[in-house]
Design a protein around this nucleic acid. Structure first.
Lengths: 257, 257
DNA sequence: AGTATGGTATGACGTAAGGTAAGAGTCAAG
DNA sequence: CTTGACTCTTACCTTACGTCATACCATACT
């Protein structure tokens, strides 16, 4: 009563892939007991047992070359090999401990330099205002985008965020000073371009196609429909809102593709 | 005052190989600041700093692809990446713990099934006799060989060693029964061949060239010069020693190459 | 008998992070 | 002008397979 397994059967039995058995055959780790006339591999019980042993040593992270020796050379120093292996494993574990320590330290270090929470992120705005801001941003760009960007913002070093916020303030001030100019003038458009880049940065959008003209125009409409976005000091400024909307729309239509 | 490093200089400074810098250049991880007219790479201070950062993340086991993103994309979620990495490191550590446990168990299991010490290995012989046996073996085959074989023997499952010992006894008894025969007869030579194989196994010599004819003949001479080697029960047997020596020498001269 | 389905064999390419080597060009010093 | 030290690019090698691509084989169904 001899039992024969085809490659796939043996593979399923042992939980390995057919490719693996092909490989083991080629490197002489596990040869089929026979080949059929059409060169199909046939494995018997002995091979199944050997495969179990192979998998055991493989689980111990022995390279296949060593496993060949372990199984084929009865005088192979198995115990010393295991002891040596144990030492190697210990060393690797210690290295991992060191790594974990370093990673922890790094994370803490970074966290101290980053925003701690959403209040801080939206600081400067009244709480309800921040909530509304967020809600509308979600409506405009979708929840996923906003969450992703917030996550990125929270991980950004404080200085960078402060820089972004400061930039935004500067841009608005520069625009405010240009309020009498033609919204299509080069000076205004330059500031609008800065604003666009800043918005993209703030939302963590690196792929230009992610914030298309249509979105930016939507943001422009948002400006006039809710003056809150332009209230530097809490006081609305509808004239400036309209001015900026026009500049943004022109920018979106002409400079963005 | 600008400082320029050639590849080898930078490599030495940072403790990496030139090939590594070539690779980092090719994958866009660290490009030289300029190339000389003859396409020699030149690195500046900025590149040195970047290399330091690269090595930091590399020590944390980040793949180079990730490091590119970490360094080039300011919106890369570094903290989440680190947290995720920490989780991966923890998982690897736990796996290592499991492995260490298994290895330990395996070693203990094996040790229980193997010889514990040299006394046990040479058991059956009086202690001084074992020491002399060992000393002469060292003279014959060299200390390294003997130590290696003893190490192998000590790691061999008990059953196997017992089998070897039993075989040796059997062979000698079979030869004793053939003492009146022609040493060159096929029956005798068959047993001698078994003896030779046994000796080889016992000394853990798997490479046939390691125990050449000359050694085996040396062992044969040893037999008559010191009858202890044939004293089954402690009583010398010079006639049998001579018989066996002849058989061995014939075997060595004719069957071994 | 022909075909649809699915197992099989072989070979080749790709992976991560370089090591190693080959063949050719470059630089500074003696 | 030669020698030795450097450098360039190209390309193959490593581990333990995964993933095709191509072609052959086997069995069941029509």
């Amino acid at each position: 009563m001899k039992v024969n397994y085809a490659v796939k059967q043996l593979a399923k039995l042992a939980g390995v892939s057919v490719r693996t058995l092909h490989l083991y055959d080629k490197i002489g780790l596990l040869k089929p007991s026979i080949r059929t006339a059409s060169r199909y591999r046939q494995y018997g019980e002995k091979e199944l047992l050997r495969l179990q042993q192979i998998l055991f040593y493989k689980e111990l992270d022995f390279p296949l070359k060593d496993i060949i020796h372990i199984l084929d050379d009865p005088y192979f120093g198995l115990v010393s090999a295991l002891e040596g292996h144990k030492a190697a494993l210990k060393a690797r574990k210690e290295r991992l401990d060191t790594l974990l320590n370093t990673v922890n330290k790094t994370v803490n270090h970074l966290k101290n330099k980053t925003m701690q929470n959403y209040e801080e992120l939206y600081e400067g705005m009244p709480r309800e205002q921040a909530a509304a801001y967020r809600k509308e941003a979600i409506e405009k760009w979708g929840e996923e985008t906003v969450l992703r960007s917030e996550k990125a913002l929270l991980e950004l070093p404080k200085l960078d965020i402060e820089r972004l916020k400061a930039d935004q303030k500067n841009i608005k001030q520069a625009l405010k000073a240009l309020e009498g100019e033609d919204p299509e003038s080069e000076q205004v458009q330059l500031q609008i371009a800065r604003h666009y880049a800043n918005i993209r940065s703030f939302w963590g959008i690196s792929d230009p196609t992610d914030l298309k003209a249509i979105n930016y125009k939507g943001l422009a409409e948002l400006l006039v429909s809710d003056e809150r976005y332009l209230a530097e000091d809490g006081k609305p400024d509808p004239a400036f809102a309209t001015f900026m909307r026009n500049a943004m729309i022109y920018f979106a239509d002409n400079k963005l593709k």
